[in-house]
């Protein structure tokens, strides 16, 4: 894979496509959770392909290709959301003093719709990276460029929301 990245960095589009297609389904599904419909998610994939090929020459460490690509796809999703919906993203100051053992193991009956409807964008990012991409909290904090404590707090909050959703008043949905 590292060879393909190096080839792509020289401008070889076939090498780049070979790389990109390994991840395009992941990117599409992640985008879908943010933008909530197939057409926009496809736009995000196309834009991600466009931006990432244009800038792959600047990628210093080929081994980080995947997380780098994920970052770009999240950016593209956010940009699209902003353009379409004028959503703003404001982050409260987060306290990072949570313990390390966040309970992730409760067997939730989570649906895609819960992820889409219940979580805000930063919560989606952390949940997807943690559970869909299998990244550690440390890797998540690097990918999203946030302090580890903040990543923990967001994960904790997102899990809490998903749990409350089960107990809450929306069970008829």
């Amino acid at each position: 894979m590292l060879d393909l990245v190096k080839e792509a960095q020289k401008g070889n589009d076939k090498a780049f496509m070979a790389l990109f297609q390994k991840y395009e389904q992941d990117i599409y599904r992640m985008a879908f959770v943010y933008v909530k419909n197939p057409n926009d998610a496809l736009d995000v994939v196309q834009e991600t392909a466009y931006r990432s090929f244009k800038s792959i020459k600047n990628l210093k460490e080929p081994k980080y290709f995947k997380t780098w690509l994920i970052r770009i796809s999240i950016s593209c999703s956010m940009d699209l959301l902003r353009k379409k919906k004028k959503v703003v993203y404001l982050k409260p100051e987060l306290e990072g003093n949570l313990s390390d053992d966040i309970n992730e193991d409760i067997d939730l009956e989570v649906t895609v719709r819960d992820l889409i409807e219940r979580l805000n964008e930063d919560e989606k990012s952390v949940i997807i990276l943690r559970f869909y991409e299998g990244l550690t909290l440390k890797e998540i904090s690097k990918t999203l460029n946030i302090p580890l404590g903040t990543a923990k707090t967001i994960l904790y909050r997102a899990l809490d929301k998903l749990r409350k959703n089960l107990k809450g008043d929306d069970f008829y949905e």
Partner: peptide, 28 residues
């Protein structure tokens, strides 16, 4: 939980034109 979210995410159907759109981005 982890598996559940992954399973759910994988239920999102992949449109046929996905690869085509990736290529369009790259060629652009």
């Amino acid at each position: 939980m982890s598996n559940k979210i992954k399973q759910e995410m994988n239920k999102i159907e992949i449109p046929k034109e996905l690869s085509e759109r990736s290529k369009m981005g790259v060629s652009q």
